[in-house]
């Protein structure tokens, strides 16, 4: 009697669960699919009502336009440079700060760590104008430096927060025994503690990477020449520069998303683990 009830219930459960997941996947994925489908449509077929799903004449004209006749490649390089440098600097600063905060017995430093989380609260829009003025008087406008500095402010607080909780979970005994062997301070940090906290480090890098790669507001206001512009802004220009907006924009989107998706697919195991661990323990 119990068994029948359980089986019936579990069949409903299964059907509902899978159906729900399939719908969810469609919801999550359809924009990407639509993006790819639009990017291979020839110009005339994009503005149709009702919109056509598939095209009979797939073309790569949009891609050729985007890769060879636009600012996208340069913007790509800019994005890569800014993102990589920001990520590296973030790691250095966050590891140090996270470690310092995790190990310190100073009360005021503990308050600082809460304060760091508070800086997450800061609406970026509020500091755009003052930063603009400062960068302008320092001559840093329209340079990589302005983007890197501004991006660091967004990413470092979270990085410190995540790493602090990681380092806290590394038992102090490890360092104690290292000290006995004569290994102290920074050396101890890098040789002994870090390897244990690697998932956290990876999580912070990926967080910094993803965030900086798509950073929009600062790039919008601090850069204007195509030498320094990053991808999100270059993408928006397709709405001005090119005649057939959507086709090329969709192709550009595919080009831009590609590296991010690759990174994600290859590293997702670490990423999932790292982010989840970091916040659950935090």
């Amino acid at each position: 009697m119990d068994n029948k009830y359980l089986i019936r219930e579990s069949i409903y459960k299964k059907i509902f669960s899978y159906a729900f997941l399939i719908l969810l996947i469609l919801f999550a994925v359809f924009p990407c699919v639509w993006m790819v489908l639009t990017s291979i449509k020839p110009a005339g077929e994009i503005f149709t009502s009702p919109p056509r799903l598939l095209t009979e004449n797939p073309t790569f004209a949009n891609y050729i336009k985007v890769i060879f006749h636009s600012n996208i490649p340069r913007a790509f390089l800019n994005s890569v440079l800014v993102t990589v440098i920001t990520t590296i600097l973030t790691l250095i600063v966050s590891i140090l700060a996270g470690f310092g905060l995790a190990r310190s017995k100073f009360k005021s430093l503990r308050i600082l760590s809460v304060g760091i989380l508070f800086s997450q609260l800061l609406p970026s829009i509020v500091i755009v104008l003052p930063l603009y003025m400062v960068f302008s008087s320092l001559g840093l406008l329209d340079t990589y430096a302005s983007l890197i500095i501004a991006n660091l402010s967004i990413v470092i607080p979270m990085g410190v927060f995540m790493l602090k909780s990681y380092f806290k979970n590394v038992p102090v005994e490890l360092e104690e025994s290292a000290k006995i062997d004569g290994c102290t301070g920074l050396k101890a940090l890098f040789i002994i503690v870090m390897p244990v906290a690697i998932p956290g480090v990876i999580a912070v890098s990926i967080y910094a990477f993803l965030n900086t790669w798509q950073q929009f507001l600062y790039a919008l206001n601090f850069t204007h020449s195509s030498d320094v512009k990053t991808l999100p802004i270059a993408l928006l220009e397709f709405r001005q520069q090119f005649k057939v907006d959507w086709g090329s924009m969709m192709s550009a989107s595919v080009v831009i998303s590609f590296p991010v998706l690759m990174v994600f697919f290859l590293c997702n195991k670490y990423f999932v683990k790292g982010v989840a661990d970091g916040s659950v323990k935090g």
């Binding site: 250095i92 600063v93 966050s94 140090l96 700060a97 470690f99 310092g100 905060l101 190990r103 310190s104 100073f106 430093l109 600082l112 760091i116 800086s119 800061l122 509020v126 500091i127 104008l129 003052p130 930063l131 400062v134 500095i149 501004a150 660091l152 402010s153 470092i156 607080p157 410190v160 301070g185």
Partner: peptide, 22 residues
């Protein structure tokens, strides 16, 4: 003191890029 030094770079950046504009 060493711990404080470790925290300084982060604190400086936050001070400059966030506190000052605020």
């Amino acid at each position: 003191n060493i711990n404080v030094m470790y925290v300084i770079p982060a604190a400086l950046i936050i001070l400059f890029v966030m506190i000052y504009p605020l």
